[in-house]
Simulated scan of single mutants.
Amino acid sequence: MLKKGLYGIYKGVEFRITVDMDNNLKIMTDKKEKTDSTFEDTYQSGVYTKIVKPNELVDCVSVTPFGIIKGEKVQILQEKENKYQVATGALLVGSNLNLPRIDRDSWLGWVSKGEVKLFEEITPINPEDL
């Protein structure tokens, strides 16, 4: 599964991090076994959240997935079954990979996972800054 976004460790377990409209820092997961009675499934969607304080999180990172296709670096936007949705803002990269042009400076398309060498850019973040 494609890992993308903000992540941190809470009580020894990795969770996705988000900030709600009231600037509450929340951890979230769709894995019930990672939760306890303090987590809520507010919308009965199978996504469990809990408001936490920044000092309760450690090893927080921002994860951005990228891919290499035929020697060209592209953004990985999402995955579906055996494909990744990839994008680039570079004319030569979009042309070389035969990606559909969707805007003046944007090329976007779906490619087989087998064509992509996936890697992640991981940047440490301070949860106090969120």
Rank of each mutant, 00 (worst) to 15 (best):
K11N: 14
L130K: 03
S106C: 09
D103C: 03
I102F: 02
I27M: 00
E81I: 05
F15M: 08
Q75E: 14
L92T: 15
V63A: 05
V111Y: 02
L97F: 09
D59R: 11
I9L: 06
V61K: 10
L6W: 07
P124Q: 06
G8D: 07
L99M: 11
G94R: 12
T42P: 01
E79P: 04
K50M: 12
N23G: 01
L108T: 12
G67A: 08
K4W: 03
T88I: 04
E115W: 02
V63K: 07
S45D: 09
V93T: 15
Y84S: 09
K11Y: 10
D41A: 06
L92N: 12
M28K: 13
E40T: 13
I68H: 00
N96D: 14
Q85A: 03
N96S: 15
R101D: 02
Q44N: 12
T42A: 11
V93P: 05
E128T: 00
Y48R: 03
Q85P: 01
L130N: 09
S112D: 15
C60V: 05
Y7E: 08
E81Q: 11
L97D: 10
K80I: 01
G71H: 07
T38C: 07
L97H: 07
I9A: 02
I76D: 01
G71E: 10
R16T: 05
N55I: 05
A90R: 14
V93W: 02
L108D: 14
E81S: 11
N55H: 13
S62C: 05
L2K: 06
G8M: 04
E121M: 10
F66I: 03
W110H: 08
E128S: 12
E81H: 05
R101N: 13
E79V: 10
W107L: 08
V52D: 04
D36E: 03
Y84Q: 10
I102W: 00
L130Y: 09
G71P: 08
S45C: 13
G46M: 10
M1W: 00
N82P: 01
V47T: 15
P124E: 11
T49R: 00
P65W: 05
S45L: 13
D129Y: 03
E14A: 08
G46H: 03
E121H: 12
L99K: 06
G94N: 12
T123H: 06
M28S: 12
P124H: 07
G89V: 07
E120P: 00
V58Y: 00
N82Q: 10
I68L: 15
L108M: 13
S37L: 13
L108Q: 11
G8V: 04
E120H: 14
V52C: 03
L92P: 00
D30R: 10
E14P: 01
I27E: 03
L97A: 08
T123D: 04
V116A: 06
I17F: 02
V86F: 01
M21K: 14
K3R: 14
G89N: 12
E115Q: 13
Y43K: 11
K117E: 15
